[in-house]
Design a protein around this nucleic acid. Structure first.
Lengths: 263, 263
DNA sequence: GCGCTCGATATTGTCAACAATTTAGCCAAC
DNA sequence: GTTGGCTAAATTGTTGACAATATCGAGCGC
């Protein structure tokens, strides 16, 4: 209704490839045959979850957009049951909003909530870096210092993507070091939930210059085995992120509907 | 197979009442009639979630117990689809564990994980009490001081249930004051997830004596508008909880299977 | 006697038809 | 012109049947 047709193609064009990739792993063991009737080997629930999730992350599905079960069915060639459960899964992840009898849509995460998310992340991640600092081993120290070096290089080269990837590696490294699986789980969900807001920050040309000193300080504190300093450094970074997000949102406010992902 | 029969009654006997209560709210508007065929007005998905959740909380379903869809169906008089989605919901809550093609069981939360949960809760709740201390209003102060008074009285009277209820009120109050919906959401899930371990602590006769000073200190710090002190007080409490949980688990280790809920 | 394949059974996963609900358009009445 | 109810269309929710998968036990060869 809202948009008559053809938009389901947005989901189909690029998604099925990625979706099939994860679906292939499943049905590989045995050929179903299915009594001669070929039901087009429809996507499993997990594959649908992944396809829709990626579509949201990559901006093919914009916040607020309606997710009609039947449309997704056709676009991904999946049965409605699978699509339905997939949407429920995504609701639990906080990516999709579902209202009873009224359908699902891509969840809109308002700035205020995004700031709250950063705040909670700050609390949980400060726990993680503190524990990482306490538990650091010589091997970890070498790895972290190498990452610090790499981070500096990427920043100097102006390699935005590489810099973003490396920060993720740092994050994953101290998370592993912290040995806090519950914290890791919580963080994964929170990060997924404000991917969009995070993207706006991460992929800015000048972001590396601002964030590099914060990252280096965090790494230095962990390597020094100083939990308090690590917490402080992480909180400083988080506060900068909050401020920058606010500033960015204000700057973009006038343009309302537009979302210039690649500023 | 494992246990031939009759155990489904464990779920049915007491649960349907509570389940019906929440189901009643839904179907109240209109009588379905359903073409003359009476499908026994089966429980909706949410009602099943609630019934199973309560059964787990109240210990009628013990950790590790298998949750066969068909059995729950019959016990609660719900359709399998609803039971199925309910189990998936509970999986997301961390209460139920589901293995593909092998069914669901009540999740076993090992001591180690329970300690991790307390640690994450400590991080998130310390954020909340700090914010509560920053944002406190005169009305909040009056409310908190009244709760502190009540807490002291219940502890003196040895009213274990009342004391537990009041601590929950304190928790809810500073959570509301903190204005951190995301943190509240995360905490709700974490609390649900180690309900069982928490019960062992909360409902001990002598627990109030130990925890009361911690609670009073937290409240005092919030009322004083001192975020740092509030965080410190909360962390002290959390650490005591961790230590006590460890000690309790060790003490119970010899008795293996038994779970003396009302020690 | 021991291990192994092969069937029987129990249980979960998928699907498509059906029921219920909401929404939008329309006409009538005020 | 606006409000109110009524009907039709679109969409979600539910159910039962069927397919796929894992588990267990019996028979069989070694």
């Amino acid at each position: 209704m809202e948009r008559p047709m053809g938009e389901s193609a947005v989901l189909a064009n690029n998604s099925t490839d990625a979706a099939m990739k994860s679906a292939g792993t499943k049905k590989s063991t045995k050929t179903p045959a299915t009594k001669g009737k070929i039901p087009a080997a429809s996507l499993s629930r997990e594959a649908v979850v992944e396809a829709v999730r990626q579509s949201i992350f990559q901006g093919r599905l914009v916040p607020g957009q309606r997710l009609v079960e039947a449309e997704i069915c056709e676009a991904l060639n999946a049965s409605r049951g699978n699509v339905r459960t997939a949407l429920m899964d995504l609701e639990h992840e906080g990516l999709v909003e579902r209202i009873a009898n009224r359908g699902a849509r891509v969840r809109i995460v308002p700035l205020e909530e995004a700031l709250h998310i950063v705040e909670v992340r700050m609390a949980v991640e400060s726990l993680c870096v503190a524990r990482a600092a306490e538990r650091i081993t010589p091997e970890d120290r070498i790895e972290l210092q190498a990452l610090a070096q790499q981070l500096t290089e990427k920043a100097e080269q102006g390699d935005v993507d590489g810099y973003a990837d490396t920060t993720r590696s740092v994050f994953e490294t101290y998370l592993r070091m912290a040995n806090q699986p519950v914290a890791a789980e919580v963080l994964a969900k929170l990060r997924a939930r404000n991917t969009r807001h995070r993207y706006r920050l991460t992929y800015r040309k000048d972001r590396a210059k601002v964030s590099l000193p914060y990252w280096l300080e965090i790494i230095a504190a962990i390597c020094a085995g100083d939990p308090a300093a690590a917490e402080a450094a992480l909180r400083a970074h988080a506060q900068n992120v909050q401020e920058t997000m606010k500033a960015l949102a204000e700057a973009e406010q006038p343009f309302a509907g537009l979302t210039p992902l690649s500023g």
